[in-house]
Simulated scan of single mutants.
Amino acid sequence: MNLSSPDTNPECLFCRIVAGDLPADVVRRDERVVAFRDIDPKAPVHVLVVPVAHYPDVAALAAADKDLLADVVRVGAEVAADECDGQFRLLFNTGRAAGQSVFHVHGHVLGGRSMQWPPG
């Protein structure tokens, strides 16, 4: 199933997962957002929530499409409701220094254990 569109980047890891070109453990999908398990989880529940359209980070997404950002957050909450009783942390890393390693905006839904503060 190839879902590529003008809003995708064929060299982007997450665009390739969204398009079905790379395998992932998808837990939720709609026409605008895909959620799949992180391959290196940092909590018992660690799901990445990405828009189908390619945006490099959350600031770019917020500037371009506030409704899509709201959809990403909504799907994150739905995943958390299903997997960790609605108790979760939703984290967006923006830039290398902040820990972003894939430059396709993605929210980390973290849950299933007590979270510490500050996060690090």
Rank of each mutant, 00 (worst) to 15 (best):
A80N: 00
A70I: 00
R29W: 03
P6A: 07
A77F: 14
G76C: 05
P23W: 06
L61Y: 09
P56S: 09
P10W: 09
A63P: 03
D40R: 15
A62F: 11
L69D: 06
L48M: 08
R32P: 06
A70M: 02
N93E: 07
V27G: 09
G111W: 10
F88R: 14
A62L: 14
G111S: 10
E78K: 12
V34F: 05
M1D: 12
I17F: 04
T8N: 15
D30H: 06
P44A: 04
G107W: 13
D65S: 04
E78I: 07
E31Q: 15
L13D: 04
P118L: 05
H104S: 01
A98W: 05
V27K: 13
L90G: 06
P56T: 08
D40S: 15
A64K: 01
P23C: 05
D85F: 13
Q87F: 01
A80F: 00
Q116T: 15
A97Y: 02
M1V: 14
I39Y: 08
N2L: 03
A19D: 11
D82Y: 13
H108C: 06
D85S: 15
C15K: 00
A53G: 03
R96C: 01
N93H: 07
C84V: 12
H106E: 02
A19S: 13
A60Q: 02
M115N: 04
H46D: 01
Y55N: 04
F92W: 14
C12T: 01
I17Y: 09
R29L: 11
V102Y: 10
V75N: 00
D40Q: 15
D71A: 11
V26D: 02
P44T: 05
A64T: 00
A43N: 03
L68W: 08
A43K: 03
Q116Y: 09
N2M: 07
S5R: 15
G99F: 08
R28C: 03
A43P: 04
